[in-house]
């Protein structure tokens, strides 16, 4: 019975994906046993944060067919909003009796960043992609991709002109010393980041699978004309998708603000990392992006551990290139789906 179920899962996800998952699992366990469980904690914390950014990217590609290269800039906007909301309360943090505001301010910062990211997403869709969609007949992927690159440049330089190129940072969000988990000391900020990204991912998943609008988003990603034919308001779904995606990136930026000070090009690393993830799992697959985020996090952590911290982008990229040579559609790729679509 259990074996049959396992075989079912195997068939559904595909051999490559299953082998990859097993290898990753073995690597995680092996390294955790030989080098210590702190690796596990590192993978989880890095994976949670990366999945927030990567899922938004996958969503935008899956639903709107946009190769979003300004995604990291939404992360940047998140860090910026968090800075301006949280830093006024920073001196409270080191007073003798930190009040409720110390705990409330980080939460406020994250929520504000999410809201601003959402609004920016709406504006981006309404001001940029909607006019482009009306005018573009073919070549949508290329045109929209170029537009996002331009948008990214404008946002980076806009940040520099308005807020300057210096680092705008807070020292930390939450009071208190590091917490001991499995022999690794985790700062309360990191712990909070893990919990927040976990909650957001669950919330996102519930939205996509249980709500009316969420199912509409999934439907649009599968067939735009079909969605129109059953009465789904396409422009609304596009706007919502862009808004959610930008909101997720901004939330990630705000949550990680204690690690990433806000400066114009802070979004570069999240952009690249989330593109690694999305390419690795196959474009437009949000659930896959979540799993892929943990894989890329694992590659990164293991590289830092065994090879050296300067290599943490090189080895994952090389691995992804290798995987793509053998499975160009990504490990959860849509080879089956496109066959089925015929």
């Amino acid at each position: 019975m259990i074996i049959k179920k396992l075989v079912d899962i195997w068939k559904k996800t595909g051999t490559v994906a299953c082998v990859m998952l097993l290898v990753c699992l073995a690597l995680t366990l092996g390294s955790a046993i030989t080098r210590g469980p702190y690796l596990l904690v590192n993978v989880i914390s890095a994976g949670c944060m990366l999945s927030l950014v990567a899922m938004g990217l996958a969503l935008v590609f899956g639903v709107m067919n946009i190769g979003m290269f300004a995604h990291g800039e939404m992360f940047m906007i998140g860090t910026l909003v968090a800075y301006f909301v949280a830093s006024p309360f920073q001196n409270l943090l080191y007073e003798e009796h930190p009040g409720l505001m110390v705990y409330l301010a980080p939460l406020l910062a994250v929520l504000a960043a999410g809201a601003v990211g959402f609004v920016v997403g709406v504006l981006v869709e309404l001001l940029l992609f909607r006019p482009l969609r009306k005018r573009t007949k073919g070549n949508w992927v290329m045109n929209s991709f170029l537009l996002t690159v331009g948008l990214g440049i404008i946002l980076v330089n806009g940040h520099q002109i308005i807020f300057g190129a210096n680092y705008k940072a807070i020292t930390k969000y939450l009071p208190g010393g590091a917490v001991d988990i499995l022999g690794v000391y985790v700062s309360p900020d990191r712990l909070a980041a893990i919990i927040i990204s976990f909650l957001v991912v669950i919330g996102f998943w519930l939205f996509m699978s249980k709500t009316r609008l969420g199912t509409a988003v999934r439907a649009v990603s599968q067939d735009e004309t079909g969605s129109l034919m059953v009465g789904i308001d396409l422009p609304l779904i596009f706007t919502l998708t862009m808004a959610i995606s930008c909101g997720l990136a901004a939330v990630a930026g705000a949550t990680l603000h204690f690690m990433y000070p806000s400066y114009p090009s802070v979004g570069l690393e999240p952009t690249y990392l989330s593109w690694f993830v999305v390419i690795l799992v196959g474009l437009g697959n949000t659930t896959g992006a979540m799993i892929g985020a943990f894989m890329v996090a694992l590659f990164k952590v293991l590289t830092v551990e065994y090879v050296g911290s300067g290599w943490d982008h090189v080895v994952p990229t090389a691995l992804i290139m290798l995987i793509l040579i053998f499975k160009p559609s990504g490990i959860f790729g849509s080879a089956v789906r496109s066959k089925v679509d015929q």
Binding site: T215, A216, R218, A219, Q222, D223, T225, G226, S227, M229, V230, R337, V340, D341
Partner: peptide, 15 residues
Amino acid sequence: LNLFTNMSVHDNLLM
């Protein structure tokens, strides 16, 4: 037809 190919028959009908 423009069906939602990755959804079940039931989900297609609900859509």
